[in-house]
Computed example of a mutant assay.
Amino acid sequence: MSEYTITYIKNENPKEKPQSDQLSFGKYFTDHMFIQDYNPERGWHNQRIVPYQPLTLDPAAIVFHYGQTVFEGLKAYRTKRNNIQLFRPDKNMERLNRSNDRLCIPQIDEEFAIDAIKHLVHIDQDWVPNAPGTSLYIRPFVISTEPYLGVSPSATYQFIVILSPVGAYYEAGINPVKIAVENQFVRAVKGGTGEAKTAGNYASSLKAQEIVSKEGYAQVLWLDGVEKKYIEEVGSMNVFFKINGEIVTPELNGSILEGVTRNSVIQMLNHWGLPVKESKITMEELYQHYQNGELEEAFGSGTAAVISPIGELAWEGKKMVINDSKTGPIAKRLYETLTGIQYGTEDDLFNWTTKVSYK
């Protein structure tokens, strides 16, 4: 166990909780938040759970000017037995520290961070919704707080965790989406910050997303930033293709974010004995497989949606309709199995879940 202790200040003016069947994503926030400070003299210190409140930062804080910040996203789920559990929080904290390293942010104590999250979720456990498909989204993040306009790493930081009850990602069940392949803008390049979960990656994706949304597409399929031909990610998710019986996902290359759900999908497919490989794949190759009738399924994987089937790809004026725009059997099985583990209706064969509290 960690040597840190957490002080707790109760929110004496709790908010009215939204109805579980009326939740969207990221709109509501719970009564409390976790904060931990950092300075060079004391390291990480002053761990506290306090009422949810605005932050007070100097206008010159480095986070505002140079974007030195990282974040994570995971969820707490209420099971049918009314237990609350997390899904693979250790992988999120490992990735947070990899992002910290890339952004020159001090490493956090991963074990303590999980303890802090469990403590916070336990305090706000009544906010964990119980409607089908709903969950409590957990957003840990680190911001640089030193007031300084020189381009250098901050000397001070805050590690913060906030919670948000969220609705089912698919209101009418798991449905395929239309995706446009992006040829003008790029998301990241090897040596950049693509494999870190940092704010700037998402800000730079907004323009392409804005354009394709006006054309009726749900997301952007990103190509590599150098040759603009190798497939990388879809929106903010990793992507998989079933080609002639084999599942293929782009290999990690220094610009692709290593998703926790991606890792889980690969492990699950291997457990089922289904052929899966990580390799480079170009849009031209994918289109040829489509022309040959070999592109059988496509789907994205990520925390928010778990599995998001792709029904159509638009690329250079050509439309590729995949599996008649229907959810394929692999995507469906993965979605049902992973969500079953998360909500406690499927056996957790991999010990992926962590219990938070019991009511």
Rank of each mutant, 00 (worst) to 15 (best):
Q68S: 11
D348V: 06
P14N: 14
R139M: 00
I117W: 00
I138S: 06
G340S: 10
A116Y: 11
Q219G: 01
E171Q: 13
A113G: 09
I162N: 06
E346V: 07
S325N: 14
L57D: 11
E3T: 15
W272M: 00
E12W: 01
P54M: 11
S301D: 11
Y287F: 09
H271R: 12
Y148W: 15
T327E: 01
V239M: 11
T69P: 01
L286W: 00
F112T: 13
K178W: 04
E336K: 12
Y343V: 01
K355W: 05
S357L: 07
W222S: 01
K91R: 13
D90E: 15
V166A: 07
H271A: 05
T145C: 12
H119S: 05
P51D: 10
Y358E: 15
G225A: 12
Q184W: 08
V306D: 07
I6S: 10
P176R: 02
G259K: 01
S144R: 07
M93W: 02
T198E: 04
T327W: 06
L295P: 04
A155P: 00
K10H: 11
A113C: 03
V265M: 10
S164W: 00
E233P: 03
E346G: 09
A208I: 05
L338R: 00
G200L: 03
I310D: 13
G67K: 04
Q291F: 02
Q19S: 14
N175Q: 14
Y137P: 05
T261M: 07
K355M: 07
N39A: 05
P309I: 07
V63D: 12
V226C: 08
L286I: 04
V239C: 03
F87A: 06
T79W: 02
D324M: 11
N92S: 09
P89D: 00
Q53P: 03
K190E: 09
S20H: 12
P165I: 01
H45E: 09
V166P: 01
A304C: 11
K178Q: 13
I114E: 03
G167F: 00
L257C: 08
K15P: 03
Q267F: 09
G344W: 04
Q68P: 14
G167V: 00
A305F: 09
G311W: 05
E297H: 08
P40H: 10
M33R: 08
G340H: 08
F87Q: 04
H122V: 00
M320H: 12
H119G: 02
H119L: 01
S301E: 11
N100R: 08
L206P: 09
E111Q: 13
A180Q: 13
T69Q: 15
Q267Y: 11
R95G: 10
F240D: 12
E195K: 09
V220T: 12
K207E: 15
W352T: 09
I281C: 00
E16V: 13
F141S: 07
G200A: 10
H45F: 08
Y170C: 09
F185M: 12
